[in-house]
Every structure is written in C-alpha cells, then in structure tokens.
C-alpha cells in the first residue's frame, strides 16, 4: 500500500486526502502542545463547514453528498481549526467553518471557483469582527491538558493557564521598552522546546514534515512555499542587521503560522497562482506582506491578510506569468479584454 501513498494522486479526492495525511503530524503535535481543545475545534469547524456546504448546495438544487465526498470541505475546516487559537471559545471554530465554506466557497459556486482562500477569508473576517476571541485564546504551551475549554468568549484570558499572547505578540508589545535579547528572557520562552518559540516550534516542524510529504507526492511545487519563506525570512534577515529591535529570523520562521502557511495555505491551488513562476511571485508577495504586517501592522500574524491580498493579485499574476509557448517568440500576456 505504501507505493499508493507515494504515487502522485490521480483524482481530486486523492489530492485532498494526501493533504489530510500531511496535516496529521502537525495536528498531533498541536494536540500534544495545546491540549485536546484542538480536536474539539476540528470537529466543530468541520460541522460548520459541512453545514454550510450542504445548505449552499441544497440552495442551488444540487446534491450535497458528492461535494462532501471530494474532501475539500473538511480540508478547509481542518486548516481553520489549526489556524485558530486553541483556547478560543467554542462558537468560534463553528462560525469560522460556516463563514469559510458559506461565504468563501458556496457564494462562488463551490469547489474550484473560489477566488480567495476560504480558511484565510474566515480567519480575516473573524479577526476583524471578533478580535478578542481571536487573539486571546492562546494557551501557554503544554498546559492545554490541564486547562478547561472555555465555552464562551467571556472570561477568556482570565482563566488560569491561558495567556493572551503568542511569541510574536510578546515581541510586538515589549519592543516599546525592551530589546530583543531582553525579551527572550521572558518566562514564556522557558516553557519547553528549543527556546525559539516554545511549543509552537514543534508544531511548525511537524508541518515541515507534512509539507515534505506533499512535495514528495508532487501535490505541491516548491515555488510557492520557497517564495513565501524567502519573502518573509529574507526581509527578517535583512532587518536583523539591527538585532536589538527586530524579531530574530528563527522566531519568524518557527513562530506563528509561518511553516503551516508555507506548505498548506499559499499552496492552495484554487486560490493561488497556477504557473510555477506565478506561484513563486504569489509566495514571495505573501511573504513580504506578512513581514510588513507582523512588523508594522495592527494584526498579530499577517498571513491571512497577506494571502487574501495576494489572492486578489492572482488573476493578474496568472495573466502575466504564462510560460512561453513552444515556437512563439514571447509569452502571451494579459487577456483579450485587457489588450490595449
């Protein structure tokens, strides 16, 4: 059976399932680090997503089962569950699933038609409309198993064992008074792990493993992830000439959603660019904007907005990165309606 897993997938369903498989290590690590809440979120997001899929398909007079079978709906929910804060109130993943599939996918006609990444759209909508629930539901790593899941948004942050901050938040808030090496002395760094982004780094590295699997199975190409990492970490490395006032490159790489996004978000074929060259530009753009938002913006982790922005650039990227056709002197650009 092993060869089956390693061969390039032959159907849409197999493509989605290989992404499921690739998500398993990261999910398991997340459960280990953040507690069983991750699994609860997974189930709730899945329910919300499937509900939206069924309602959307029924409203258009189509059978819902076939659309659920291709596995893309659950994949979106899964990605969302991993992106949301693990101690967020329980309504959050459900609503996120509803929004992602309902607004992000069904409005556009279902699988393959959505111009933006449904998971990132739901994330962005929620971080704008429910900022407290979206930013304070972070658990101190490895304490998830002893922490009760909050049922509502009320009191988040006040419960013992919860913390409102991720490592990136910490840097952002503490830079007003402290330098980067001083911030690194914060007790949060000594919770466990490599001391770069405690706990989260294990999750990130597991996602790296999953990404490697996807690459080996030729589900994803290298261009988008590498572009994303070059954009984000390249800028981080450039600004690291001032180490006191910038987040270290390794933290940029292992904290937040960097590796998760690099392999599972910017590689989404539907909302991403299609040509390899286009994927490179797409990834690079998303990386650069993520850095800008992380460093200068108001929102804690800019991936969702960066990916959303680049999703809107995709039609242009697609039109201007077509490879040169054999026998033609140059590549075809633009569209008929934009030829002038």
């Amino acid at each position: 059976m092993l060869w089956r897993i390693w061969a390039p997938p032959q159907s849409t369903r197999a493509v989605m399932q290989s992404v499921w498989i690739a998500l398993i290590p990261g999910t398991l690590t997340s459960v280990w680090v953040f507690g069983p809440g991750v699994l609860v979120h997974l189930v709730l997001a899945g329910l919300g997503a499937c509900l939206a899929e069924v309602i959307g398909r029924r409203a258009r007079g189509l059978a819902a089962t076939q659309a659920l079978q291709d596995g893309s709906t659950l994949l979106t929910a899964w990605l969302l569950a991993l992106a949301l804060p693990p101690a967020a109130p329980l309504w959050l993943p459900f609503v996120a699933g509803l929004i992602a599939i309902g607004l992000g996918k069904q409005l556009y006609g279902g699988l393959g038609q959505n111009p933006v990444n449904p998971a990132m759209l739901a994330y962005a909508i929620l971080i704008v409309s429910a900022p407290v629930a979206m930013t304070t539901g972070w658990i101190v790593p490895f304490q998830g198993w002893s922490t009760p899941m909050p049922l509502t948004g009320i009191g988040v942050g006040a419960v013992d064992g919860l913390t409102g901050a991720t490592i990136l938040d910490l840097y952002r808030t503490e830079f007003r008074e402290l330098t980067a090496p001083e911030i690194a002395q914060h007790p949060l760094f000594s919770v466990g792990g490599l001391g770069i982004a405690p706990g989260v780094e294990w999750v990130a590295l597991s996602h790296l493993l999953g990404g490697g699997f996807l690459f080996a199975r030729r589900v994803i190409r290298w261009q988008a992830p590498v572009g994303f990492l070059v954009g984000l970490l390249g800028l981080a490395a450039f600004f690291a000439i001032d180490p006191d006032n910038t987040v270290p490159v390794l933290t940029h790489a292992l904290a937040g959603a960097t590796l998760f996004s690099a392999f599972f978000i910017v590689t989404d074929p539907v909302s991403g660019a299609t040509s390899p060259r286009g994927q490179w530009w797409f990834g690079l753009g998303a990386g650069v904007i993520t850095y800008l938002i992380r460093t200068y913006g108001l929102y804690p982790d800019g991936v969702a907005f960066a990916v959303l922005f680049m999703n809107f650039m995709v039609p242009l990227i697609d039109q201007y990165t077509r490879p040169r056709i054999h026998g033609e002197s140059r590549s075809i650009r633009g569209s008929v309606r934009g030829r002038s």
Partner: peptide
Amino acid sequence: ITAGFMALAFMGFSGI
C-alpha cells in the same frame, strides 16, 4: 461581495 472581501484584505495594511 468580492469588493467587500478585497476591502477586508486591505484592512491588513492598517497601522503600517
């Protein structure tokens, strides 16, 4: 609807 989502994407730049 899409224009709305686009505005959402641009909200990411706020504060830069």
